[in-house]
Design a protein around this nucleic acid. Sequence first.
DNA 1: AGCACGCCGACT
DNA 2: GTCGGCGTGCTC
Length: 798
Amino acid sequence: MYAKVIVDVPSAQTDRQFDYEIPDNWKSIVQPGMRVVVPFGPRKIQGFVMSISEQSSYEQTKAVVELLDAEPILADEFLQLGNWLAEETLSFKVSAYQLMIPAALRTKVRKQLKANEIDSLPPHLRRLFDQGKVYQWDDLIKEGASVLSDVQAEVKKGTLEVEYVVLEKGKTKTQRLVQLNMSLEQALSLLTKRANKQIELVHILSRQPAPISIQALLEEGQTTHASLKPLREKGIIKEVDQEVYRDPLSGLQFERTEPLKLTNQQQQVVDQVNPCIQKEKHDVFLLHGVTGSGKTEVYLQVIQQALDLQKEAIMLVPEISLTPQMVNRFKGRFGSEVAVLHSGLSMGEKYDEWRKIKRKEVKVVVGARSAIFAPFDRLGMIIIDEEHETSYKQEENPRYHARDVAIWRAQYHQCPVILGSATPLLETYARAKKEVYHLLTLDERVQNRKMPAVHIVDMREELREGNRSMFSTVLFEKLKDRVANGEQSVLFLNRRGHSTFVMCRDCGYVATCESCDISLTYHRSQNRLKCHYCGHEESMPRTCKSCGSEHIRFFGSGTQKVEEELTRVLPEARVIRMDVDTTRKKGSHERLLSAFEKKQADILLGTQMIAKGLDFPSITLVGVLAADSMLHIPDFRSAERTFQLLEQVSGRAGRHELTGEVVIQSYSPEHYSIDLVKAHDYQAFFQTEMNQRKFGQYPPYVYMTLITISHQELMKVIDVAETVVAFLRRELSTETTVLGPVASPLARIKDRYRYQCMIKYKNEPKLRKVLVEIREHYQRELNKGLQLTIDLQPYLFT
DNA sequence: AGCACGCCGACT
DNA sequence: GTCGGCGTGCTC
């Protein structure tokens, strides 16, 4: 019997199955989807069993050396999904499989030196084995080169041996429990009358039917470890280790909520989706619901339907909106049947949540992108909230989109998918219009609340009237009003730091990062300049590096500067700033939001991260300080992103009894992506933008593929890029457009020059084959400095 | 990815 | 003559 194994070596040459003999004692145990350790050349590595076969076409096969799982870690569904995903994203199969298992289960191979005959070693080598029979290879490197060749000589003789140990990173957490090791009478007979505390502890234990934790025991007995120790020494108690889950939400209480009464519109949506769950029919729904229309309640109720039918559900949310508010709503409705997966969890916590799913202890998963791989086997519903969010696309290999995986899994399980958004991605809405997806609309807010009124302020006008501050008169007055009335405001600015760039007034020199083609951002609190791409930091120069002048000035405002300005012009306002810099520490996100919720501040000032999910009753004003900040980015989706962001931010206002207002400051208020926010008119935006896309031949009218080439040397990059483009033009059909090569918008990052080329096509069956050929051609150079990334359906063009 | 094998230049 | 630099190819 042979196991067909995909080995854990992510490279083009090893991206296929290898055959290994299964030793007799494992023949009945090994199954597809299990992890094994196999010999691979001179070393030992991990692999995934794909299938089991009676024969092998290889004359000589090595045997599986270790079995890492007692049952398959990847169900058949995932073996198929991985195969599809690898092909779809042009990545290695093993990389696709690694996505599906928690990081804690990924293995590391440790190389070590084992002494077979310590006594026959020369003294300078024998020294290494003072501590034991093994010596870590990593430490050997520090010993110097001559030792290495001596070691190699001994390995040849057989006195030393090179070993490979496969280690799992994660551990299960255990808790120590105690119980009585004998009857109460026996125990008491072993104790003196004066040992009051010990006697009490024994009594407590005798009342417990099951072992209890040491902590609980000592607490109940009102004592410390001092009274436990003698019991342990006399053998009166027995201790056992029990596996426990790390609970990221420990100590939190969730108030149980009941389903809310649905509006007619909400009910219609539920009525269309529920039959699909019941009849096990696959369908993709686009739920287009304006902000505040109660999409979340719809999600909760269709998930309830799935649970009622003994099925499971996955709900994806953008990382950024996986706020305590969202978690509370799910925990409140489904209690302990929910697992939560997001990047804020530690590796161990993620592993525990994953095991709860695998063991069927939960029925619902709420999580960010990777939660789409939750190991359920009776999926009844998949929901992707804020479907247009860019975070659903992974920006490293495998470059997959959670939506595509969701639809694949839903087809496999024959269940519906709901894509929900107030501002769907253009491609998605176009598909709904073509009836590829099923369109469901919620165009009214719940309880007939009005959409917030939007004022658009022309900042050029403000400037002309002599207002050079970053707040327009309108916004400032309204802010002041809110603070006076005890209502809350949200201020949004898509830039962190203090100033976006620092320029010399005399010679025009702009401080840039030495490794990237990016201007440095000034951070006031540390008085330093930072690169937001590579993390490089330097102190703020007193004089211009180029001409020595002292006239260095700050330009472009970030959140830090706005905060400063606010305390100056509106000293009575209490401000909370939320951006990457203030939320870096674990839990600070929650802390800041709950402080705002408790009305410990009047103004919440922040970047992207406050744009979604916030639902606080007393927010009645939303201010957008620089609406055009995204508009001039060289990306065909910049108008769409601007509209989406403005709509999302506006949606934070007036979600409850108090009506809301929005003030948008812009230097191009006539642009449709800004102007149409006034009427909250997605339809009009869709039409206008579709015309633009048609005119420029952009998605959804064409598909796109982006190839980015980078290298330390500029000439090398240009050379490769030109060769690639020429090859593409020659191989692809004449209807396909190949653009470039051009320097990437971020032309240099971390000392690497970057060029890109874009392929636009409608129908190109040869594409994958041609792309694979390009990658194979540069195989050799890929190890040596050259980087070539291929992104099918890119979201970002940096 | 590692690792061995193998082929050329700078040394004892 | 040998040590060790890296290019090339293989791993069931």
